[in-house]
């Protein structure tokens, strides 16, 4: 045992026995498996975050879309209401503009329709046509008489 050690010690380093070296090299030994466990937490957190974020985002998006749709419906209702209001005002205007109501108002102001047209030529100061003063009878009656109304009722 010691002689071998001595012989080995005596033997110069360069005078190695090739066979022993090969043996030495060939000897395998068990290396403890290094289990460098990667932490799962970040992955789970990431996936969860994506999932939750996605769901929440979708929910928010959907809610805001719904909200927009509701406010759109509300605004369009408002627009419809305003359009209806405008239209009813226009109708009122049209009714006021109808010849009968204009004539009735004009008559209430004492206005009459001229009986005969006459034209004043401004440069010469001459009047062509026969200028005739308007009178109360030059405007036709605006309303039918009671008699005619009664006749219509009988006919009906």
């Amino acid at each position: 045992m010691s002689s071998t050690a001595a012989a080995q010690a005596r033997r110069p380093r360069w005078a190695t026995n090739p066979a022993t070296d090969a043996l030495q090299r060939a000897r395998l030994f068990l290396v403890p498996r290094s289990r460098a466990k990667a932490s799962k937490v970040p992955f789970i957190v990431l996936v969860s975050a994506l999932l939750v974020g996605g769901v929440v985002g979708l929910l928010c998006f959907n809610t805001s879309m719904q909200q927009a749709a509701f406010s759109e419906a509300k605004l369009s209702q408002e627009a419809t209401d305003l359009a209806a209001k405008q239209e009813s005002l226009e109708t009122q205007l049209q009714r006021l503009q109808n010849p009968q109501s204009i004539a009735a108002r004009a008559q209430a102001h004492g206005m009459v329709i001229p009986p005969t047209p006459a034209v004043l030529h401004v440069p010469s100061g001459k009047v062509s046509g026969v200028a005739t003063p308007a009178t109360a009878v030059s405007t036709p009656r605006l309303w039918g008489t009671e008699y005619r109304h009664a006749l219509m009722v009988i006919q009906r």
């Binding site: 109808n98 010849p99 004539a103 329709i113 036709p140 009656r141 605006l142 039918g144 008699y147 005619r148």
Partner: peptide, 17 residues
């Protein structure tokens, strides 16, 4: 012409009556 039409209708009605 609705103004003229109105006038014609009123004059005509008065004459008819």
């Amino acid at each position: 012409d609705s103004d003229l039409q109105w006038y014609v209708q009123r004059v005509l009605r008065q004459a008819d009556e």
